[in-house]
């Protein structure tokens, strides 16, 4: 029987040909995915670090199999992938009411999509979703998305420190950076109480307008008339909407209140409309510049001309006077 601790200090000095490792009996069920450590007589060479986790599952700060961690990851991906997010507070909305509100919302968005499809724009209706969120986890995920930059400082710090740096959002490093309470995203006061979000894959004012007119009707965004859409005025939808309050929005990382959200929704014709406005404005500037330059000479002409008329009148007057 070989000794349990195979110490052979001579091997550290003189490299001898490596003897074949003795075959030890082991059960397949006990085999682990980790690479076994090399025999001790090889440790004078460079040994790659032992990876103790599969490459697709880097270790996370909190236990990865829990619902909390998965929701955290999911909210991070939601925040990263949707530039426009509306925040609502929901006060005890029943399941039936949620169902009917969602139905009305999809119907309205489909209608907008059908209009925009004529101009060849892609449809967004299926990707705009109203979902209830876990407020605390969402707040934490928002902090990670705002303040944790996975690329920044990784290479420099990695060179200094031996330990590996993880770049995923649920890592310990992300948690430490995001738990700095001095950093403020501006959305913190909104993130309390029961919340629901509407997330948009792109900033599309037309779709935002449809969502606002369904979920928080106002004079600027009137709700559909009873004749046009009788379902919208059913008891379930109206009962649910009374309990849904628009708090604010996060548009491309910036925080907007109710008025700001309405302003974004009131942009006519979306991004194309804005471009048309800009072109129109630039044309206007050209015209006004030309008239301004022309103005000086024209006014001089008018002055001289009026002076001439004046003198002519005087001459006539003098002649008549004689």
């Amino acid at each position: 029987m070989p000794p349990r601790i195979r110490l052979c200090p001579r091997a550290l000095r003189v490299r001898k040909s490596q003897p074949p490792t003795p075959i030890t009996r082991s059960y397949a069920s006990l085999a682990t995915a980790t690479t076994p450590a090399p025999p001790i007589n090889q440790t004078n060479q460079f040994v790659p670090q032992i990876q103790r986790y599969p490459p697709t599952q880097p270790p996370s700060h909190k236990p990865p199999e829990t619902r909390k961690t998965q929701l955290h990851r999911q909210y991070q991906s939601l925040l990263r992938s949707s530039p426009l997010i509306l925040l609502f507070q929901h006060n005890n909305i029943l399941a039936v009411e949620w169902m009917s509100i969602r139905r009305e919302l999809t119907a309205a968005l489909r209608k907008v999509d059908a209009e925009l499809a004529q101009n060849g724009q892609p449809s967004l209706a299926d990707n705009i979703r109203l979902q209830v969120i876990q407020t605390g986890i969402f707040a934490s995920a928002l902090r990670v998305v705002e303040f944790f930059d996975p690329v920044k400082g990784t290479i420099a710090e990695q060179a200094e420190k031996e330990e590996e740096r993880f770049t995923h959002g649920v890592s310990r490093r992300a948690h430490e950076i995001a738990s700095n309470r001095k950093l403020k995203s501006g959305l913190e006061p909104l993130l309390s109480g029961p919340l629901a979000v509407v997330s948009f894959p792109t900033v599309s004012p037309q779709h935002l307008k449809a969502v606002l007119s369904i979920l928080s009707p106002s004079p600027e965004f009137p709700a559909p008339k009873r004749k046009v859409n009788p379902d919208y005025h059913s008891l379930e939808v109206q009962g649910g909407l009374q309990k849904l309050m628009l708090l604010g929005a996060r548009v491309e990382g910036k925080v907007f209140d109710m008025e700001g959200t309405k302003w974004v929704g009131s942009i006519e014709g979306g991004i194309d409309g804005l471009r048309a406005q800009l072109v129109h404005m630039l044309q206007g500037i050209g015209g006004s510049l030309a008239s301004a330059l022309e103005g000086a000479s024209r006014s001089l002409y008018f002055t001289v001309e009026s002076r001439r008329m004046d003198m002519e009148d005087k001459e006539k007057g003098d002649k008549k006077g004689e």
């Binding site: 913190e188 109480g193 209140d257």
Partner: peptide
């Protein structure tokens, strides 16, 4: 004002009302 931290209890109060409050004649 939802953007003020001191409005938290006002918002939470609204969330404490039962789902059928308005239907039962409470004016909110």
């Amino acid at each position: 004002n939802p953007f003020s931290p001191s409005s938290k209890s006002a918002r939470l109060f609204l969330s404490l009302l039962p789902p059928n409050a308005r239907a039962d004649g409470m004016k909110i």
